[in-house]
């Protein structure tokens, strides 16, 4: 079975082809990503209209490239999947309209994929992880701890009540005059900084529900930075180190609480999974590895190219849904907000 996947939720335009064999294992045949980072860099964040404009210019070429690289024609794919949300509406409409049209012309099933579920199912593509597992999804747009029980069957254990983790990294980078996207920049600065110099809070630590809050930490960092401004290179490194250390502590604590919650509500997880762009941060990965070891679990972190936005994870989620008969029709709507809890689940196994 082969599925074409289309991703246009934010600032990457992407298309990929993923296949599964008789044993159900997934293989990425192609994964083409065009990042719009350069077009948004001057704005310190993603500008929705600029993103939408870039998607419509690029998506058909990327699809053609993905099909060519996979050495398949449109007729040879079994389904066409597009991320239908959550995300920026302008881009979603471009990707979903393109997917619907391809599905209509080539007479293939359409699968409107939830972008969060695509991240949630990725460890099954990369590491064949069995349900159920605990997922920490942390990116520029999302921060969630999710019990993944099956396709379309997820319990959100915790989420952020304000900024997403990746967004907090971006805002700190912007404040300190570092480049966008901020995650890698802050991590690089943090490596040579002193995490103890600035006393920063650990918001939500110790709370019984595994939610996150980043705005207080961000404000505290701003106040500390303003006290010492104008900033030297050392100041910037120390601020980044302090910020990252606080984030690591919070993630470790929140994930530990989520694990406890998981055991009570779902049972024993097969793995702890870290997905999304923030999982690319080495310090955060180390902390999660520590935590997984402590809990006797395997830590699964999909390879970096699959942690960011890409078409392969959309294609894989589409494939998982398609083989359960979960498809969509031509009236499928783009959904800027689309919580995992509102997903259609697979019919119960008979």
């Amino acid at each position: 079975m082969r599925v074409l996947g289309i991703e246009t939720t934010c600032d990457e335009t992407a298309a990929a082809v993923v296949a599964s064999g008789d044993d159900g294992r997934g293989v990425i045949l192609s994964n083409e990503v065009f990042s719009q980072i350069a077009e948004h860099a001057g704005y310190g964040g993603v500008v929705p209209e600029i993103a939408a404009r870039a998607h419509v210019e690029a998506i058909d070429r990327l699809i053609a490239r993905a099909l060519r690289a996979a050495d398949v024609t449109l007729d040879q794919v079994d389904g066409i999947a597009a991320a239908a949300g959550p995300g920026l509406i302008g881009g979603l409409l471009v990707g979903l309209t393109t997917a619907k049209t391809l599905a209509l012309v080539a007479r293939k099933p359409l699968i409107a994929v939830n972008h969060l579920e695509a991240h949630a199912l990725t460890p099954r593509l990369t590491d064949e992880v069995a349900f159920p597992y605990l997922l920490l999804l942390a990116s520029g747009g999302h921060t969630q701890l999710v019990a993944v029980r099956g396709v379309g069957d997820h319990i959100r254990l915790g989420t952020t009540i304000d900024d997403a983790l990746g967004e907090a990294f971006d805002k700190v980078a912007k404040l300190l005059g570092l480049a966008y996207p901020g995650g890698p920049e802050v991590e690089r600065e943090a490596r040579r900084g002193d995490p103890e110099r600035f006393a920063l809070p650990r918001p939500m630590m110790g709370r019984p529900k595994p939610d996150f809050s980043l705005s207080g930490l961000k404000t505290a960092l701003r106040i500390e930075a303003e006290k010492v401004a104008p900033l030297t290179g050392t100041d910037i490194a120390d601020l980044c180190a302090g910020f990252q250390a606080a984030v690591v502590d919070v993630i470790e604590d929140r994930t530990r609480v989520a694990l406890r919650d998981f055991r009570e509500r779902v049972g024993r997880p097969t793995a702890l999974v870290a997905a999304g762009g923030v999982a690319a941060n080495g310090a955060i990965r180390d902390a999660l590895a520590r935590l997984a070891g402590e809990a006797g679990l395997r830590l699964v972190a999909p390879p970096l190219p699959l942690c960011g936005d890409n078409g392969a994870i959309i294609a894989w989620a589409g494939l998982e849904r398609l083989r359960l008969g979960l498809t969509d029709d031509m009236t499928a709507a783009a959904r800027p907000r689309w919580p995992l809890a509102e997903l259609e689940a697979a019919p119960p196994a008979s």
Partner: peptide, 12 residues
């Protein structure tokens, strides 16, 4: 959309 620089702190 306009480029934003306002949020940035002064740097030595």
């Amino acid at each position: 959309a306009r480029p934003q620089d306002g949020a940035r702190l002064a740097r030595l």
